[in-house]
Amino acid sequence: MRIMLNDTSLQLATVSTLAQLLQQQQLRTEGLAIAVNNSVIAKRLWQEYQLQNHDQIQLFHIVTGG
């Protein structure tokens, strides 16, 4: 399966859920938010959320700001 992660195209072999993708990418989940195909996927769903071929995944995180 091939997905877009922000601006990077990724070929996934062993990864099938959002949570597995985050683990593979070694991402800190604190302050992180995810949208798949422009819909926000709540944190509590990451564990079971099944990725599909051609999914556009966008990662956002909290930074400082006024």
Partner: peptide, 30 residues
């Protein structure tokens, strides 16, 4: 207040939140 940004893959994520969460303040994302 805090802001939101697209994550740059491969860039180190700072632990901004845990010190703030220990301070017992209401976080207000913009």
């Amino acid at each position: 207040t805090l802001a939101l940004k697209r994550l740059q893959l491969g860039q180190q994520q700072d632990d901004l939140l845990s010190p703030l969460q220990q301070m017992n303040i209401q976080l207000l994302p913009n």
